[in-house]
C-alpha cells in the first residue's frame, strides 16, 4: 500500500517536474526540476533494484546536474537565444506537454500487458519522461536544454530498462553515460570561450 502510494507520488513528481522543465525559462529552475526527476526515477528503479544500486542513478544524475549548474554559473546574461521556429508562449508548451502526457498515460496500460510485472507507475513514469524528453529535443536547440532533454530521455529509459535488466555493469555504464552527457553539455557550453591549441605541423607555427 505504502509502496503504491510512493510510486504514484513518484509519477506525480515526474509529471510536474518534466512539465516544469519544458516551460521553465530559468536555468536554475530547469536544473532543480531535472534533479527532481532523478529523485522520482530513483524511487521507481528501487522497486526492482536494491536501494544501493538504484542510488547509483540518483548520485550520477545529481552529479551531472551539479556539473551543468557549475558550468552555467560562469555565464551571465540571456538564458538562451531566441528560438523563432516554435512559439515560446507558456500555454503552447503546456498544451504540448499535455498531449505527450496523455499519450504516455494512454499507452502505459497496453505496455503493461506486454511487460507484465513491471507495474503501471514504472511504465507510466518511464513513458512520460521519454516522451517529454523527446518533445524537449524537438523544440529547442539550446545547448543546456538539449542536454537536459537527453538526460530526461535516458532517465525514462533507465527506469524501464532497470526492470528488465539487473546487470551491475549496465548500471555502471549507464551512470557513466549520464555523467558523460552532462560533461559533454558543459564542454559544449565552454567550447567557444577557449581558442584551440593546435599541434603545429612542421613549418607552420600558428594555424587559425
Amino acid at each position: 500500500m505504502l509502496d503504491n502510494l510512493l510510486s504514484t507520488s513518484a509519477v506525480i513528481i515526474i509529471l510536474v517536474a518534466s512539465t516544469g522543465l519544458l516551460v521553465s525559462r530559468d536555468w536554475r529552475w530547469s536544473l532543480a526540476l531535472c534533479a527532481g526527476q532523478y529523485l522520482a526515477a530513483f524511487w521507481l528503479v528501487s522497486l526492482h533494484w536494491p536501494v544501493g544500486l538504484a542510488a547509483v542513478k540518483l548520485v550520477s544524475g545529481w552529479m551531472g546536474i551539479a556539473a551543468l549548474g557549475l558550468t552555467r554559473l560562469n555565464f551571465s546574461g540571456e538564458d538562451e537565444t531566441k528560438e523563432k521556429f516554435w512559439p515560446r508562449q507558456l500555454w503552447f508548451h503546456f498544451l504540448l506537454a499535455a498531449i505527450v502526457i496523455l499519450l504516455a498515460l494512454a499507452a502505459a496500460p497496453r505496455l503493461e500487458n506486454f511487460l507484465p510485472g513491471l507495474g503501471l507507475p514504472v511504465i507510466a513514469g518511464s513513458l512520460v519522461l521519454m516522451g517529454m524528453g523527446l518533445l524537449h529535443l524537438g523544440i529547442t536547440s539550446h545547448n543546456l536544454r538539449v542536454i537536459l532533454g537527453l538526460l530526461t530521455i535516458l532517465c525514462g529509459f533507465e527506469i524501464l530498462y532497470a526492470s528488465v535488466e539487473g546487470s551491475i555493469l549496465v548500471a555502471g555504464l549507464l551512470a557513466v553515460i549520464n555523467l558523460g552527457l552532462a560533461l559533454v553539455g558543459c564542454y559544449l557550453m565552454l567550447a567557444g570561450s577557449v581558442e584551440p591549441e593546435i599541434d603545429s605541423p612542421e613549418g607552420f607555427e600558428t594555424i587559425v
Binding site: M189, A191, P196
Partner: peptide, 18 residues
C-alpha cells in the same frame, strides 16, 4: 561522447553560447 571534444577542439571559434 568522447568524440565530441575531439571534433569541437578543432572547430573554429564562435559565440560563447549557442
Amino acid at each position: 561522447m568522447l568524440t565530441i571534444p575531439l571534433i569541437m577542439d578543432s572547430s573554429s571559434s564562435g559565440e560563447r553560447l549557442n
